[in-house]
Design a protein around this nucleic acid. Structure first.
Length: 435
RNA sequence: CGGGGCGUAGUACAGCCUGGUAGUACGCUUGCUUCGGGAGCAAGAGGUCGGAGGUUCGAAUCCUCUCGCCCCGACCA
C-alpha cells in the first residue's frame, strides 16, 4: 500500500477517551475508529492485523484436525427457548424482533447452534470424534465496555467445539486443543499461561484460561515460574496419546491460577523464589462440559452396543479481536507499537526520504514491487521526522529507509523496530534480510 | 446497575462562574525557505459550541429535559 493513498489516519496526540496503551496506540496508529461504546470499525491496517491473527489461528486449528465452518451472527430465539436458556442468559444477550415480530438474537456464543447442527447431521458413533470451529463476530451487551477492543460489546472470537463418544476421548480433545492454543499464542509472539479457572455459567468441571501477562490485565494471576520454561511442543505429534499426556502434565502441573481459583494452601507449596504474581489478560479459554449441551438439545447417536449416547462436548475460545489489544499491551514502547512478525499489518515500511529524486524513487519502487503488497510505502513528500515517527508508531517489524545519499551509493538503511538496530546495506541484501 | 466526570474545528483544550460578533496549540491547504530522525516564516480553510425546549433585546455561557462518551466498582472471550 502507498501511504499517500491509504486510509491510515494517524494521530499525533492521544485521544482523551483512551487511557490504556493499546487503546491509545490503536487509535493513534489508525487501526480502529470507535463507532459506539464498545463497537469499533476496523480500518485497513487494523483489519490486516485481525486477518493475520485469524490466519495463524486457522493454521494451528487445521493442523490438529479441527474443521472450519461458519455459523451466522443472528440466531433464532426458539433454539434458546427449547434449551431453557433464552430467559436464563440475561440482558447481556441482544434480543431483536424481525418484521414478523419473531424473536432473534445476535449470538453471544454458539454451543447451542453447533449442538443443534450436529443433532441434525450425525447418525452414528462412527462419525466421532469431530472438532469444529468458526471465527465469527459475537455481541454481548456488557454493562461497561472499556479498554478499547479489549472489552468491546461486539468482538471477533474463534470458538470451537469437540464431540467425543466418551470422557476419555473428550479429555484427549481437550488436551489437543491446549496444545494447539499454546502453539497459536507462541506464533503470535506472546506467552500465554494456562491457568486453572472457574467454569462459569457454561458449566462443566474442566477448564483453563489462557492469560497474557501485562500490567493492565483485568485478572490477578498467580503462577509458578516453572510454567514459563515448559517446551511448547511445536513438533509434537498430537495423535500420540502418550506424548500428548506428557505434554499436558508438563504444562498444567506447575501452579497457575487466577484469583477466582487461587488456592493459598497450594500456593504455599510453591518455592518462594518461583512465585510470580501479576495481572493477566484473558485471551482464551478451554472447557470440557461433558454431556450438558448434548442433553440440552437432545444430541445423541447410537453407540457400539446400540444404546443411545450423548456425545461429550468441549468448547474452546480465543478472543481474536481482544488479542490485538493484548498483543499491543505486551509489545509497545513510548514511540508506539512493536508488532510481532506474524501479526504485523505490513512486514516493512519503505520510507522515501526524498520523494521526487529520481534515483531514490526508483529504489523505493523496486523494493515496493518486491514486497508485493506486504509493505507500506511511505511516499509522502514529508520531512523524514514525520515518516520515522509514523513508522515507529505503526510498529512495522522492519523499516527500509531510502534516501538520495544511499540511492546514489546503492545502499539502503534497514532498521529493526523491536531493537532499534540500524544497518546500511545494499538493497538486495536488505530485502533478503526481511524475507 | 450504583458512584463520579465530560460533550466547543480532524486531535488536545481554553472560554461558561460574572450572558454581548467562537479562541489557542497541533494537524490540514497554499507559497517561499529548509531538507538523512516529529523544520521556519507567511497566508488560508475548517465549528448549526451533542440535541430539544425555556428565560432574555441577546445564550457556548443561566434553567429544564434528553442523547452520547469516559473513569471507578459489581459482572464477562
Amino acid at each position: 500500500m502507498r501511504l499517500s493513498r491509504s486510509l491510515v489516519p494517524t494521530l499525533k496526540e492521544n485521544p482523551a477517551e483512551a487511557l490504556i496503551a493499546s487503546h491509545r496506540l490503536m487509535l493513534r496508529a489508525g487501526l480502529v475508529r470507535q463507532v459506539a461504546a464498545g463497537i469499533y470499525a476496523w480500518l485497513p491496517a487494523g483489519w490486516r492485523v485481525l486477518h493475520n491473527i485469524m490466519d495463524v489461528v486457522r493454521q494451528e486449528q487445521d493442523r490438529v484436525g479441527a474443521q472450519e465452518l461458519l455459523m451466522p451472527t443472528m440466531q433464532s430465539a426458539d433454539l434458546w427457548r427449547e434449551a431453557g436458556r433464552y430467559d436464563a442468559y440475561g440482558p447481556e444477550m441482544l434480543r431483536i424482533k424481525d418484521r414478523h415480530e419473531r424473536d432473534l438474537i445476535y449470538g453471544p456464543t454458539n454451543e447451542l447452534q453447533i449442538a443443534d447442527l450436529m443433532r441434525q447431521s450425525i447418525r452414528s458413533y462412527k462419525e466421532l470424534p469431530q472438532t469444529l470451529y468458526h471465527i465469527q463476530w459475537k455481541f454481548r451487551d456488557e454493562t461497561r465496555p472499556r479498554f478499547g477492543v479489549m472489552r468491546g460489546r461486539e468482538f471477533l472470537m474463534k470458538d470451537g467445539y469437540s464431540f467425543d463418544l466418551d470422557q476419555e476421548g473428550a479429555v484427549r480433545s481437550y488436551r489437543t486443543m491446549m496444545l494447539s492454543y499454546l502453539r497459536t499464542f507462541r506464533r503470535l509472539g506472546v506467552r500465554a499461561v494456562p491457568m486453572a479457572a472457574d467454569t462459569g455459567p457454561i458449566g462443566g468441571d474442566l477448564s483453563h484460561e489462557f492469560h497474557i501477562l501485562a500490567p493492565t490485565g483485568e485478572s490477578q494471576v498467580f503462577y509458578d515460574s516453572q510454567v514459563e520454561e515448559v517446551e511448547i511442543g511445536t513438533d509434537l505429534d498430537h495423535t500420540d496419546p502418550a506424548a500428548l499426556e506428557r505434554f499436558f502434565q508438563a504444562v498444567t502441573k506447575p501452579y497457575a491460577a487466577t484469583d477466582e481459583k487461587h488456592d493459598l494452601a497450594a500456593w504455599a507449596q510453591v518455592p518462594e523464589e518461583r512465585r510470580r504474581e501479576g495481572r493477566g489478560i484473558e485471551v482464551g479459554q478451554v472447557f470440557n462440559f461433558g454431556t450438558l449441551y448434548s442433553e440440552l438439545v437432545g444430541l445423541k447417536v447410537p453407540g457400539p452396543d446400540q444404546a443411545a449416547v450423548h456425545p461429550n462436548m468441549g468448547s474452546y475460545g480465543i478472543g481474536v479481536s481482544r488479542l490485538v489489544g493484548a498483543l499491543i499491551e505486551a509489545h509497545h514502547d513510548e514511540a508506539g507499537i512493536i508488532w510481532p512478525d506474524e501479526v504485523a499489518p505490513f512486514r516493512a515500511a519503505i520510507l522515501n526520504l526524498k520523494q521526487g529524486d529520481v534515483a531514490t524513487d526508483a529504489v523505493c519502487e523496486q523494493a515496493y514491487r518486491h514486497f508485493a503488497g506486504q509493505a507500506l510505502y511511505d511516499d509522502r513528500a514529508e520531512r523524514a521526522g514525520v515518516k520515522f515517527a509514523d513508522a515507529d508508531l505503526m510498529g512495522h517489524p522492519w523499516q527500509l529507509v531510502v534516501g538520495p545519499r544511499g540511492a546514489a551509493a546503492g545502499t539502503v538503511e534497514l532498521k529493526r523496530r523491536a531493537t532499534g538496530e540500524r544497518q546500511e546495506l545494499p538493497l538486495e541484501a536488505a530485502l533478503t534480510h526481511i524475507l
